[in-house]
């Protein structure tokens, strides 16, 4: 049984004649410790797919299973707990709290965890060290560069050691050099055992992933091998049947 598994995922916005199908019968299977990129043009449905994978956007139909947990069978608050425990988010626009220091931003996911203040601080400092930001704990987001903000966002995503990190266009707001530094950082995290699912429209960035999924008009399609610098096990288009048959819940 795969660690992350999507089965016949469909997401439709609106009803009747105004209905728009953003995700159309998507199936995939990701093993623990994989680094997978999801590529596609703007409006292809990749952000919708990422939000479904982030346990924030219930699909119209289909199942999404992580670690044998049928995510959308969980109630709203249980799904919140699931997000806290299983998923680290790296948002496209950093989404750092401007009034909190770098250290406090990284500590945010630990706010509701019943751990001592000292322990939370220690975990946040370790996460910052991992992304190479030691010494900048006391700065505000306005006092650091774009690349550093992205690193803070990554540190915040990994501070509670989630098994899966979802990254939405992590280099979307960065220059080329910084983008490669960030991708190298994600690659290091992946090699340390974190499963990384990354949405990107950059072929260069997708090349850092072990394999890529292509989304076109809400459907997963085969990516063009030549478009990717790095990559293996292409094309990815698993059999739709029985992907999640051993799901723990549901």
């Amino acid at each position: 049984m795969s660690y992350v598994c999507a089965e016949h995922l469909v997401k439709t916005y609106g009803t009747g004649a105004a209905a728009v199908r953003a995700v159309h019968d998507v199936n995939f299977d990701i093993e623990a410790g994989e680094f997978v990129s999801i590529m596609g043009e703007s409006g292809a449905g990749k952000s919708t797919l990422l939000s479904i994978m982030g346990a924030m956007n219930p699909p119209t139909s289909g199942r999404f299973v992580v670690n044998d947990i049928d995510v959308y069978k969980l109630g709203s608050e249980k799904r919140t707990d699931f997000r806290r425990e299983f998923i680290g988010f790296v948002f496209q626009s950093f989404h750092l709290a401007s009034y909190l220091t770098v250290l406090e931003n990284v500590m945010l996911p630990l706010t509701t965890v019943p751990t001592s203040r000292k322990e939370k601080r220690s975990l946040a400092e370790a996460a910052l060290a991992q992304v190479g930001l030691s010494g900048k704990e006391g700065r505000l987001p306005s006092q650091i560069s774009g690349g550093e903000k992205e690193r803070v966002a990554i540190a915040r995503a990994i501070v509670n050691d989630p098994p899966v990190v979802l990254a939405d266009e992590p280099t979307g707001n960065l220059d080329s050099k910084t983008s490669h530094e960030i991708m190298a950082l994600l690659q290091r995290l992946n090699r340390a055992g974190t499963t990384i699912l990354m949405v990107t429209h950059s072929r260069d960035c997708a090349g850092y992933a072990e394999r890529s999924l292509m989304v076109t008009d809400g459907r997963l399609t085969e990516p063009d091998r030549d478009l990717l610098r790095v990559g293996n096990d292409l094309p990815f288009q698993p059999e739709p049947q029985d992907l999640c048959s051993d799901a723990r819940y549901g």
């Binding site: 982030g54 919140t80 989404h95 709290a97």
Partner: peptide, 16 residues
């Protein structure tokens, strides 16, 4: 809205 969205995304419950 943005901040609350992030809080909820990273695991803040409604009660938090």
């Amino acid at each position: 809205t943005e901040e609350i969205g992030i809080f909820r995304a990273i695991g803040f419950r409604k009660s938090h």
